[in-house]
Design a protein around this nucleic acid. Sequence first.
RNA 1: GGUCCUGUGGCCGAGUGGUUAGGCAGAGGUCUGCAAAACCUUGUACAGCGGUUCAAAUCCGCUCGGGACCUCCA
Length: 492
Amino acid sequence: MVNEIYLTNSLSRKKELFVPLVPGFVGMYVCGPTVYGAPHLGHARPYITFDVLYRFLNHLGYRVRYVRNITDVGHLVDDADEGEDKIAKRARIEKLEPMEVVELYTDKFHEAMRALNNTHVSIEPRASGHIIEQIEMIQRIMDNGWAYVSNGSVYFDVLKYSKSHDYGKLSGRIIEDLIAGAGNERRELEGQEEKQNPADFALWKKAAPEHIMHWPSPWSEGFPGWHIECSAMSTKYLGETFDIHGGGMDLLFPHHESEIAQSKGACGKSPVRYWVHNNMITINGQKMGKSLGNFINLEELFTGEHKLLEQAYSPMTIRFFILQAHYRSTLDFSNDGLKAAEKGLVKLMNASEVLNKLHASEKSTSDIPAWRKACYDALADDLNTAITIAHLFEAVRIINSVNAGTETISANDLDVLKKTFNDFVFGILGLIRETNDSGADTDKLMKFILSLRNDAKSKKDFATSDKIRDELAAYGFKIKDEKDGTVSWTKD
RNA sequence: GGUCCUGUGGCCGAGUGGUUAGGCAGAGGUCUGCAAAACCUUGUACAGCGGUUCAAAUCCGCUCGGGACCUCCA
């Protein structure tokens, strides 16, 4: 059992040995989706990445509390609708209640997560269900003198805070630049005139009259600022300091930087020990973005209905595709890449079936214990799923070779191989066999048809046997003559 | 404009001072009635230029290309 995991900590930008705050327990918070739109390809990456981290930590014996929020309040929409709540905007377009929209897309998000086999979350708190906690945290920040009220809104005083704290450390930002409003490109944001300083950020926003989602607070009828929900909910469920906070790299600034400031402002201590960030998925080299309009929904990916898609890709193909790259690298979407992943996954799954019928010999021709260690080492080294998968394909080669009789494996090694291979493929990487669930009737029919084909073959009537095989292939049933004389089949 | 990341063979994608990444595709072979699958062999790589070093794809500098953040975003 490997106990030493290294993770790249965005705070230090280095790989660090992971040591949990409390031995044996891990608290992990991952920024969840804003549920005002359909889940897309970009959502797949962080939740698959941190699902694998969660599974691996669990596998190593840690008890992990994994918190992933649902953002269903606040947040500004694009510049055409400055100051308007995103959810409110969608609600008006679709003539739905805001919380109806939230329910709809929360369900869609859950469906997508299930399809991708991101199944385990300990707590999934909603921002709208934690308004009180957020107000309390804002009050603590104010009591400590790090925030001020302006026209019913509350802002975090970044300038004052930065004089005694390292604001900008996580994201590599320099406070002077932020204050100077560096970048002539900076867009005029709504509410800027209420701030004492352009670098300040909102903790509470007073709602405009047309704003649909709002709550009472000591300062105004309004809604929480853009970052406070994560601070309030992570503190509530994981404590003032916890082990791992994950999310996409695009959240580094200002979201996570602000979270740190808020938590320190409220509790006086750093909230997170290991900040872990996954890189973006790009399409034709460019980041997918809601405002860029180039994003692909997961549903579209699964059905193939999108102009960029040449075919449908199954959820496991997406998962495998994402895991073939390291989480800290950008991953460029392409049909060729997805198709290659699809075939590789089939090869891996086929081998897992062959593995179950392997026979042991006196001794092994491959070093199985060394292979096992390599698998653990790869994942423990900053969750390098790409290398882990490369090792799994080495196992595929061994499995197929033993099956073909060109290699042998001892009974003991076979046990280790089975256990480790299954642990990694299914348990840790979280892949599942996507069966086509043909049903018992199909099984019977196939058995009958294949017996006819066998009769034809034994009479050397290859015209008939080939016709059967070709016809079945046209329906998506692939026939395979095994070495031992049996015939197996798969459905596309 | 500021900060940071990145450029690997036909495609995707690891590695980061000396040792095979891996997958997909291509070529040849074994097996097969023919296939499929599997196995074996196999080619074109580290953007360009310069520097450090016994040794660089890997470190440093410059040039060129791509991208991210600075605004909601996974």
